[in-house]
């Protein structure tokens, strides 16, 4: 741990601009990460301008034009078994998966970080919080989500809640780990000796220095959240069927896989691309931000 602290304190002296360009250069060294970043940017673009890039509503049916193949006039990605435009559904699905991913990651990370900070800083809370997180770890993720949805009912919002809860313990562990090591450092011990308030120490000194692993966790978790949403939709526990959620689209499309394979291929590839993108970007971020990983 020691050498890394000196490294961070040195880099503080370097002008911010220079540090940024250095990091950017480092980032572009990871070719995959650049591809991933482009995919994410495209997704964000589609999510924001969903209304402008599509000419149909994603939910309006046209029962006279069902299962059109990709390349059909007016529907370049074809239509589904209710005659809904696949391109519109794909684009609005991009918006949904970003929303689901972001909101569950934000909820999970905020709560997880708070618990992690408390557990790491206060010894008496540590045991309680960590035992509870052990308890949650012992449940397989999907099973935990299924139980939560059984209580709350099936809806996309409840999927978000279930996935957030499921991510809390891992996040709390990571944060706790970095708090434990930061706590021992001289300047923190010094501040405590000087009588600085705990609140100030935690939020002004420990948290900012421990953000790197949180950001990495959050990015990687975006992928997991999107995948889990689709898995829950596959089990019929996710979005209501007319919403263009990618997992629900695959699950519904599977019934027509033999007549209209595009119903399954298109959302499947979309999920893979996006999850892949978040994973490679997360990987690259970890290499850059997490000093422990630098040598790898």
């Amino acid at each position: 741990m020691q050498p890394q602290t000196t490294e961070t304190s040195v880099s503080v002296k370097v002008s911010k601009n220079e540090a940024l360009t250095r990091r950017l250069k480092q980032f572009f060294k990871y070719k995959l990460a650049v591809i991933g970043l482009i995919v994410i940017l495209v997704q964000i673009f589609l999510a924001i301008f969903a209304n402008s890039v599509t000419s149909y509503s994603p939910t309006v049916q046209d029962l006279t034009h069902v299962n059109l193949k990709p390349g059909s006039p007016g529907h370049w990605l074809g239509t589904d078994n209710y005659g809904r435009d696949m391109w519109s559904r794909l684009v609005f699905g991009a918006r949904l998966s970003l929303m689901v991913g972001f909101s569950s990651v934000i909820i999970g990370t905020v709560i997880g970080t708070l618990l992690g900070l408390l557990a790491g800083f206060y010894k008496f809370l540590d045991t309680i919080i960590m035992r509870i997180s052990d308890l949650m770890f012992a449940f397989p993720g999907i099973l935990l989500a299924m139980l939560i949805i059984a209580i709350l009912g099936t809806s996309l919002l409840n999927v978000v809640i279930a996935i957030s809860i499921w991510s809390i313990p891992s996040c709390a562990r990571i944060v706790r780990g970095s708090v434990l090591s930061l706590k021992k450092q001289e300047y923190i011990t010094a501040m405590r000796a000087l009588g600085a308030s705990h609140f100030r120490i935690i939020f002004q000194h420990i948290l900012p220095n421990g953000t790197a692993p949180i950001i990495v966790f959050a990015t990687m978790h975006m992928g997991t959240a999107i995948l889990s949403t689709s898995a829950l939709s596959f089990l019929g526990l996710g979005a209501e069927p007319s919403t263009p959620e990618w997992g629900a689209m695959i699950s519904a499309g599977q019934q027509y896989m033999w007549q209209a394979p595009h119903l399954v291929i298109i959302p499947g590839i979309a999920i893979m691309l996006v999850v892949f993108a978040f994973n490679v970007v997360g990987d690259a971020l970890r290499d850059m931000l997490d000093p422990n990983m630098k040598s790898r």
């Binding site: 992928g223 995948l227 499947g268 999920i271 893979m272 691309l273 892949f276 994973n279």
Partner: peptide, 8 residues
């Protein structure tokens, strides 16, 4: 490998 939905 991690990015593929496994039911798919």
């Amino acid at each position: 490998g991690i990015s593929i939905p496994n039911f798919w």
